[in-house]
Design a protein around this nucleic acid. Structure first.
Length: 843
RNA sequence: GCCCGGGUGGCGGAAUGGUAGACGCGGCGGAUUCAAAAUCCGUUUCUGGCAACAGAGUGAAGGUUCAAGUCCUUUCCCGGGCACCA
């Protein structure tokens, strides 16, 4: 019988389920390994091939680690709250609880068909009350620690939809759905004080093994800036205008001030003469979206009529409002130094403000462009002559400011607090009781979970509140603790809530009295290998780090960092074919002739492009169909073989077919399928030296490649071993057994089947000790070495790996293809790197 | 504009500074077959040549080195991120 995945795969999946092969508990006699995949949003559309591609790296590693004797935790779950389910509820009236449950079942079924070695007994869903009880618990803890607070925030308000939109639901100032205009509106919002953790999150990056570009992005997102806060007296008032600057050394050149339009000081410093102009500008900017403000090319602003005193020069300088100063950053006000800041320069030019050079070294006249580089302080009174290099001048100025009481050293971060509320139904209810706007208390753990009530309609109310506000008997509470009539918060948590701690719940998923028992998290944490996409770099990966730190401070977990090693998988792309009319042509209708692509049976020449898989392009590949045709093992092997884990790469059905025939070829090492039945071929013969060499090289290469996650070259090593052993007509169990083990992490059903039915071992390959290589066989003692003359390869010699130079030289000279380049020349130098190269320099 | 990635055969991709193109797809030739599928063997960077062979070749241009896809400088193109953050 030929290799038939549809026969063996379901059988082994049943076996693993019945034997509970992958269920684990804490076992302190074994080293632990916690491998985690970023859990999916269970979309109603089901899996696409990008999911398994993302899960394969941990999968292969886990199967390998188990065989090495590690106690492996490899769980899966669902990030189940989210907008698509809510939208479906609005459109079709299907309760998200119901549609999500269906989607989860479909996901689980599809994931199981892939033969992924998850411990399914630990499956979790963030939308499960038994789970979100603890999300709510963490929120309550954050509230009690003063890290959750409410404040007026500008939000994206869409009047047409009657709802608040997330930033990614707004495209070019219009709602993603329906294209309605979106405004900025101030609303009371729950926030989490992630900014309190800015420094710790920065420091923590030094301790973890993450891709450097990801760390760079987090660092930039946190955006630490060192500088000073400086106080400017406002003429004719007691007001102090506080600014933040990274260049206090340019203080003498501050010829005007700029304040963000939203800044509360604006009303107090505006002169009567300017009041109406200022009001108009403030009004105008409040209607502009963030995007409008950012894309405006011209600087705009208005003089408030107020004057501030530059503490260094004693000069009165005008105070402007302008939207290029952002209220949420620093102090929302700046000292403008047009000579040394491009933005201030542009503003000064537009409004005819003076430009005073205070740092020498400009290449162009200071009237023409700002000089933001290094130089020496000039026009700066007693401080003139101080060089700016190495922030020396900054130090001098700040010392002076501190001594005079005019300012102080200060560090500012770009990171903003985390907006932690959605005016939506399908999320965790925020567990607090309120009296009007006033929060009275957070719910106690004994009152949790606060279950999401059923509602009649999922439609936005149009007031900006979530549909929960309409459930009056849920909202109104008579509080047993205080005896007061209170109201529940009707906002729910954002999608990032449940995903910020799920890795802990896997460790103790059924615990009803704790979010995760401390002795268990001490055993399993931190995560040893976390795999997910780069798109979560500054969202999820930062939020989860903050929660983990908070929980560590609360003594609920030990480690300050949750993810010790992080790796990103690339995106799976697809070839998309376009006809001359730019119309899409499905892959099934494409054929290749003379290196050109045509629509099948026609002369229509097609253009191939590599694009993201998307429903709209019709190039989404469904894993169910792949498995039906080729089986899960071929798909897994192909995914590994496609290319480097972290690279984006296109799905190619041809390539998949190639790996399917590879498995069939490998199958024939184990079974003679000529007579219509599977006849095992293995025997107890002693392996030859050649066979041992093939095997040990493969063991060495495959092991090393799994360790370094170079799965594509690991598969390539399996190809080579399979080809060469077939050539040798290998039959020995001593060869075919270890080979099956090498297949196991990649093609587990295949490996289980050949292990039991082909080699006659008891069923179950998962925990059989991983083969070890012996360098006596894995390293060749005779190798083919290139011989160069003047750096150009001219021939090849067969020589002992560690042969002395004289021997190598002798062999090279005997090689006609080399000798002809030496003829009549003087050998002046010999470069010989044993095992690598022989390079002959002649004159 | 700034910050990250990345440019290697027809295609996906291999190469601790040491024979560029492993492995796979596709192509070509052959075996098997009544035929096809499947399978097996050979071949396949480009140019010239019947061939032996020669020359060129890792986006481009320079450089370091006995030796560069790999290191350095400049530059072009593609993908992603940030975007008036003082």
């Amino acid at each position: 019988m030929a290799y038939d995945p549809s026969r063996i795969e379901p059988a082994w999946q049943r076996f693993w389920e019945e034997e509970r092969t992958f269920e684990v508990t804490e076992d302190r006699t074994k080293p632990k390994f916690y491998a985690l995949d970023m859990f999916p949003y269970p979309s109603g559309k089901g899996l696409h091939v990008g999911h398994p591609a993302a899960y394969i790296a941990t999968e292969v590693t886990c199967r390998y680690k188990r065989a090495l004797g590690f106690n492996v935790l490899h769980p899966m779950g669902y990030d189940a709250f989210g907008l698509p389910a809510e939208q479906k509820a609005i459109d079709e009236g299907v309760a998200p609880q119901v549609s999500t449950k269906e989607a989860v079942q479909n996901f689980r079924r599809q994931l199981m068909r892939l033969g992924l070695s998850y411990d399914w007994s630990r499956e979790i869903s963030t939308a499960d009350p038994a789970y979100y009880k603890w999300t709510q618990f963490i929120f309550a803890k954050l509230y009690e620690a003063g890290l959750a607070y409410q404040t007026e925030m500008l939000v994206n308000w869409c009047p047409a939809l009657g709802t608040v939109l997330a930033n990614d639901e707004v495209i070019d100032g219009k709602s993603e759905r329906g294209g309605h205009p979106v405004e900025r509106k101030a609303m009371r919002q729950w926030m989490l004080r992630i900014t309190d953790y800015a420094e710790k999150l920065l420091e923590g990056l030094e301790t973890i093994d993450w891709p450097e570009p990801t760390k760079v992005r987090q660092r930039e997102w946190i955006g630490r800036s060192e500088g000073a806060r400086i106080f400017f007296a406002v003429e004719g008032t007691d007001e102090k205008l506080e600014v933040f600057t990274t260049r206090p050394d340019t203080l003498f050149g501050a010829t005007f001030m700029v304040v963000a339009p939203e800044h509360p000081i604006v009303a107090r410093i505006t002169s009567d003469a300017q009041r109406s102009k200022v009001a108009a500008y403030v009004e105008e900017t409040s209607h502009k979206s963030e995007l409008d403000r950012q894309t405006a090319k011209e600087k705009s602003g208005v003089d408030t009529g107020g004057r501030a005193i530059n503490p260094a020069t004693g000069q009165a300088v005008p105070i402007f409002i302008a939207d290029y100063v952002i209220y949420g950053y620093g102090t929302g006000a700046i000292m403008a130094v047009p000579a040394h800041d491009e933005r201030d320069h542009a503003f000064a030019k537009k409004f005819g403000l003076p430009i005073v050079e205070v740092i020498s070294g400009a290449e162009k006249p200071i009237e023409e462009s700002a000089h933001s580089g290094e130089g020496v302080m000039v026009n700066s009174g007693a401080l003139s002559g101080t060089p700016t290099a190495n922030r020396q001048a900054v130090g001098v100025v700040v010392d002076w400011l501190e001594k005079e009481g005019l300012g102080q050293r200060s560090i500012t971060y770009k990171l903003r607090d985390w907006t932690f509320a959605r005016q939506r139904y399908w999320g965790e209810p925020i567990p607090v009781l309120k009296d009007g706007d006033q929060v009275v208390r957070a719910l106690d753990v004994s009152e949790l979970p606060l279950v999401l009530p059923e509602v009649e309609s999922y439609k936005p109310l149009g007031t900006g509140e979530s549909p929960l506000a309409a459930v009056s008997d849920w909202v109104a509470v008579s509080d047993a603790k205080t005896g007061r009539e209170l109201r529940r918060e009707t906002d729910t948590m954002p999608g990032s809530a449940g995903s910020s701690w799920y890795f802990l719940r896997y460790i103790d998923p059924k615990n009803d009295s704790e979010l995760c028992a401390r002795d268990k998290s001490d055993y399993w944490m931190p995560v040893d290998l976390y795999v997910g996409g780069t798109e979560h770099t500054v969202g999820h990966l930062l939020y989860a780090r903050m929660w983990q730190r908070f929980l560590a401070e609360q003594g609920l977990v030990r480690d300050p960092e949750p993810f010790q090693k992080l790796v990103h998988q690339g995106m799976i792309l697809a070839f998309t074919y376009y006809g001359p009319d730019k119309r899409l042509v499905p892959e099934a209708e494409v054929e290749e002739r003379d290196g050109k692509l045509y629509k099948k049976g026609t002369e229509l020449e097609l253009e191939a492009r590599i694009e993201k898989m998307s429903k709209r392009q019709g190039n989404v590949v469904n894993p169910d169909q792949v498995i039906d045709r080729f089986g899960a093992d071929a798909m897994r092997v192909y995914i590994c073989f496609m290319g480097p884990l972290s690279a984006d790469k296109p799905w190619q059905t041809n390539g998949l077919e190639g790996q399917f025939s590879f498995l069939r070829r490998a199958w024939r090492l184990y079974f003679d399928e000529t007579e219509g039945a599977d006849t095992p071929r293995a025997d107890d013969s002693e392996p030859t030296e050649t066979e041992l060499r093939i095997l040990h090289k493969a063991v060495k290469k495959v092991s090393a490649d799994i360790e370094s996650l170079d799965l594509n070259t690991a598969i390539s090593a399996l190809h080579v071993a399979t080809r060469d052993l077939a050539q040798e007509k290998s039959r020995s169990r001593k060869i075919l057994g270890p080979l099956a083990q090498l297949f196991h992490p990649f093609a587990p059903h295949f490996a289980e089947e050949v292990w039991r039915a082909g080699l006659g071992h008891p069923a179950g390959i998962s925990f059989v000790a991983w083969p070890q290589h012996d360098d006596r066989y894995a390293v060749d003692d005779e190798i083919r070495m290139g011989v160069q003359v003047l750096g150009k390869t001219r021939g090849e010699i067969l020589i002992a790996r560690d042969a002395p130079e004289a021997a190598a030289l002798e062999k090279a000279k005997a090689e006609p293809s080399v000798a002809k380049y030496l003829e009549g020349k003087n050998l002046t130098r010999v470069i010989y790197v044993p095992g690598k190269i022989l390079n002959l320099i002649v004159k």
